[in-house]
């Protein structure tokens, strides 16, 4: 028996999941613009109760490392790192856009996606997932569909929607079907990027973070290999700070 605890605070949702192997035991998500720090710890406790497991049964912690607004993003990352320390278990960082891309691919494979005409998600096609970067920009990353996990091909990056749209057009994305853009960023700027199809996932969920992390742990040959690799937030932007200019006169 293993118990993977997954959290993501990179976007509009604070989300927590508990998984045992491929089996998702519990998942919760609340939509929050801010104050992620208040909600995450109680949600972890609630998800464990729902899963019928105790905190000391956790065998690995996974965390979405963004990109995302900094203050919220750090809540998930520091929580995961400290839980890893306290529980003595490995901590696995997953790009939050990778998790959202997995959700999109899974949706495309499902009946809901087929009904919505997710033809662009056929194997070998590229698509772009986006999230809200605020300041009239979006975080994005491009993926190629295949067997199972979508393969990252470009990004992650942060750009104005218009610049992302022209780069995507130049790279030959979005020429067929309903367009290649998914996620909250596309939903926010439908006039510049194409609006995501009805019912497609908009926000990353911890269950997808857990699925990706679980597969990666399995691939590298057990959780021990992941130990010691601290998950690092994908900030993608430098801090706002300017060195002071010349002194202003008071007289």
């Amino acid at each position: 028996m293993s118990l993977l605890l997954a959290v993501d605070t990179s976007g509009a949702l604070v989300t927590v999941a508990a998984a045992d192997g491929d089996s998702l035991l519990a998942e919760q998500a609340v939509e929050l613009a801010a104050r992620h720090a208040e909600h995450l710890a109680p949600m972890i406790a609630a998800v464990l109760v729902e899963a019928g497991r105790a905190i000391d049964e956790v065998s690995a912690v996974a965390v979405g490392v963004g990109p995302g607004p900094f203050t919220g993003l750090r809540v998930g990352v520091v929580t995961a790192r400290v839980l890893g320390l306290v529980l003595g278990v490995p901590v696995i960082g997953v790009c939050s856009l990778d998790a959202l891309a997995l959700q999109v691919a899974e949706w495309g494979e499902g009946s809901a996606g087929s009904a919505a005409g997710a033809g662009d998600l056929a194997a070998g096609r590229e698509f772009v997932v986006t999230s809200d970067a605020r300041r009239r920009e979006v975080y994005w990353a491009a993926y190629r569909t295949g067997d199972g996990e979508p393969e990252p091909v470009r990004g992650p990056g942060v750009d104005r929607p218009a610049d992302l749209a022209s780069a995507a057009a130049r790279d030959g994305l979005g020429q067929k079907g309903f367009g290649p853009f998914f996620g909250r960023g596309a939903a926010l700027y439908p006039e510049v990027l194409t609006a995501p199809p009805e019912g497609a996932p908009l926000d990353v969920r911890a269950g997808a973070v857990a699925r990706l992390a679980g597969r990666r742990v399995a691939r590298v040959g057990g959780s021990e290999r992941a130990r010691g690799q601290e998950p690092v937030p994908l900030y993608l932007r430098r801090p706002d700070a300017v060195a002071p200019g010349a002194r202003k006169r008071v007289s």
Binding site: H36, A37, L40, A41, I44, A45, I55, T71, R74, V75, V78, T79, A80, V82, L83, V86, L87
Partner: peptide, 14 residues
């Protein structure tokens, strides 16, 4: 926020 989240993880974990 960083300190409070870390403290809560400690309290929860322990």
């Amino acid at each position: 926020t960083v300190g409070v989240a870390a403290a809560k993880a400690l309290a929860l974990g322990l």
